[in-house]
Amino acid sequence: MSKKVRVGAVQAEPVWLNLEGSVDKTISLIKQSAADGVQVLGFPEVWIPGYPWGIWTTSVIENVPMIHEYMNNSLAKDSPQMRRIQDAVKEAGMFVVLGYSERDGASLYMAQSFISPEGEIVHHRRKIKPTHVERTLWGDGQADSLKTVVDSPFGKIGGLNCWEHLQPLLRYYEYSQGVQIHVASWPAEFEMPDKEKQPWLYHETGEASYRASQFMAIEGQTFVLVSSQIMTEENLEKNNCLGNHVTKTPGGGFSMIFGPDGSPLCEPVGVGVEAILTADVDLRDIDYAKTFIDTVGHYARPDMLSLLVNPEAAKHVTLMKQSSF
């Protein structure tokens, strides 16, 4: 029996440093996707309030004013703004994986909330290790973020942020959770600059991120929704991105939908184009790929190679119990 699902991947420009504007645009994209029959929708990494590329291109001192605004416009998981998004998801009757900068007290985390068609946050996770200079802004996710897959009416939905796709043990653990549709949430990533003008690394390009997402589809035998941000020229200054040869605008996007054998399932859009990429998929098609390779099944050798996982989240404060005498 077939299990057909219409999936969607968002490629769009955030409403930079603007929480209310970000929520409005998120709801608009959810409604637009629902009108197109999308049942599972993925958003980019820290879509709200956008990925602050200035942390890579400008010094900490110069970024202080921007980061102050960034903190003020990050999204709390339990907030009126989040409830507006949840209501929109419920009205649409779809499943959404929402990437956002989560504010929890005075700390920020690179979060993904998994929102069910009933509008409930059925799972919430944080990037377990922010990458390089990201660590100056966002904290680490704990062990509860190792769970990356949840059940839904549309199959088992998974999600990872950005370079979590380069962590082989984390990917392997997701495969063991039975992922069928994976949301790969990414920031804007740009083409390789002229090395004589700007030394840079290939793995920090949209092409490399595209390939990493495609490899996860192949390795995990799962559908992958690649969602990425774009940036336009008028927003370079707001993001402290003027005067470098990396953040070329309009650009940053590399979104795609891959099948469980790694094949592209829709037409690509331009690197600076806003779009919701869609594809109609049949979860039964995963069996084609699994017949050849099941990474945590018949193609594994757990007698020789296995993964050790600590599922218990660490606590900042543990209260000692009083002994009764």
Rank of each mutant, 00 (worst) to 15 (best):
K4T: 10
R6W: 08
Q11W: 06
P14A: 11
E20Q: 11
G21K: 04
V23F: 12
I27D: 05
I30K: 05
I30F: 08
K31F: 09
S33L: 13
A34T: 05
V40S: 12
G42S: 12
G42K: 03
F43L: 08
E45Q: 07
V46Q: 07
I48Q: 00
P49G: 12
P49C: 09
T57E: 04
T58K: 14
V60S: 14
V60Q: 13
N63P: 00
V64I: 15
M66I: 14
I67T: 07
I67Y: 13
E69P: 00
N72W: 00
S74I: 06
L75K: 09
S79N: 01
P80T: 03
Q86V: 02
A88F: 11
V89E: 06
G93W: 11
F95Q: 12
L98T: 06
L98F: 15
Y100N: 07
Y100E: 14
D104S: 05
M110D: 07
M110H: 08
A111H: 01
I115F: 04
I115W: 03
G119I: 13
E120K: 04
H123T: 05
H123G: 12
H124W: 07
H124Q: 10
R126I: 05
R126E: 06
I128H: 00
I128E: 04
K129I: 14
H132R: 14
R135C: 03
T136F: 15
T136E: 14
W138T: 15
A143K: 13
K147D: 01
K156I: 11
K156Q: 15
K156H: 15
I157A: 13
L160T: 13
C162A: 09
L166Q: 09
L169C: 08
I181W: 05
V183W: 10
E189M: 01
D194V: 01
K197E: 14
L201S: 00
G206I: 03
G206L: 06
E207G: 11
A208V: 04
R211G: 01
A212I: 08
A212V: 06
S213M: 00
S213W: 01
M216L: 05
T222I: 10
F223E: 00
V224F: 04
L225R: 06
S227F: 10
S228F: 05
I230L: 11
L242V: 02
G243C: 10
H245Q: 08
H245T: 04
H245C: 01
K248A: 02
I257W: 05
P260S: 14
P260W: 04
P264G: 02
E267A: 15
V271T: 02
E274R: 01
A275C: 02
I276S: 04
L277N: 14
T278W: 03
A279M: 03
D287V: 09
Y288K: 15
T291M: 10
T295C: 02
G297H: 10
H298C: 08
H298F: 06
A300K: 05
D303H: 03
M304F: 15
L305M: 08
L307T: 12
V309C: 13
A313T: 08
S324R: 06
